[in-house]
Amino acid sequence: TDPCYSESGSARYCIPEFVNAAFGQEVTVSSTCGRRNCEHTYLTDLNSAQNLTCWQSEMLRSMPFNVTLTLSLGKKFEITYISLHFCSEKPDSMAIYKSMDYGRSWTPFQFYSSQCRRVYDRPNRAEITKLNEQEPLCMEMPNSADSSNAILVFSTLDGRPSRTNFVSSPVLQDWITVTDIRVTFNRPKMNKDMREPAYFYAMSDFQVGGRCKCNGHAHRCMRDKDGMMVCDCKHNTEGSECDRCKPFHYDRPWQRATPKDANECLPCNCNLHARRCRFNMELYKLSGRKSGGVCMNCRHNTAGRHCHYCKEGYYRDMSRPITHRKACTACDCHPVGAAGKTCNQTSGQCQCKDGVTGLTCNRCAKGYQQSRSPVAPCIKIP
């Protein structure tokens, strides 16, 4: 069974499973104490308490004490927490940044410091309201009961007012969307008693809890033919995050699925006469937000936004359904008897010259006889 569809076949909200998105991913670090090219797999390998494996920075003897770790998830994820397991004492000041565009731009996610204003020019524990839900907070590093195995967990939605109504909060959906995470250690916890100060940062695990972002239109992510992680899109959607409608499914605008409404993309109704269509917002609004698809290049001599009537010069053959490729028949107006080449699109009646009759205007009406003039082919019998 497909989780994106009910047993009766109707579309329903579906999401990939909750995972540690960092597991097995490569971490780039600016400082390490050991081999330079080990890819720091100890950070994102299986974290076993019985066999703790750590990454450690080089010894830092003087300022600056900056060390950066960058984790690429390779795909947009919606993350709810970042958890860092330290093998050393937790740093005094550190920042977490996120990127939503594969590392091209970065925005701050969270700061920790005993001196928020001095180190990061941020207030300590600023108030988060509905007006600034995308603002990073700065706070003191939380204390751990056991400093030898300290864990720091940053919950991305914690304290943000719309978290209880996440499905209808585009702001928070955007806030927790990431492709890359960067952790910058800026200041270790200083020990004034040390005669020759030397500091280092060490971590055993870097976890990122979240779901592959598919906007409610896929229940899993997979590798595409180029090896890139993409959603396995359903509901007539496509794109790496199921973020647009498939071609020919533009009858209503793309929307994220919600538990109440799968918001699947619907095909345009072109009566089998067009392969392409476009979305028109004006028509969509006029229809009461039901249908906005406009068919393009109607074939088989049809016309209209749904290819639902015959184009000029053709009339509807009512013996066939509109979906039939021969539903429209050429008018066949008489070149002399008819006033033009077009006919009534439903009856096929051509517009006849005076005194001419017949569906195609090919006969003189009763009381008329054929003349020699092509301008007035039928004249009244004297």
Partner: peptide
């Protein structure tokens, strides 16, 4: 009563050559 169809051969196109259908 079945009305006869227009006989194209009866038309005089002398003054209307530009209107004349190709097949007449």
């Amino acid at each position: 009563e079945v009305l006869p169809t227009l006989d194209m051969a009866l038309f005089d196109w002398t003054d209307y050559e530009d209107m004349r259908p190709e097949d007449s």
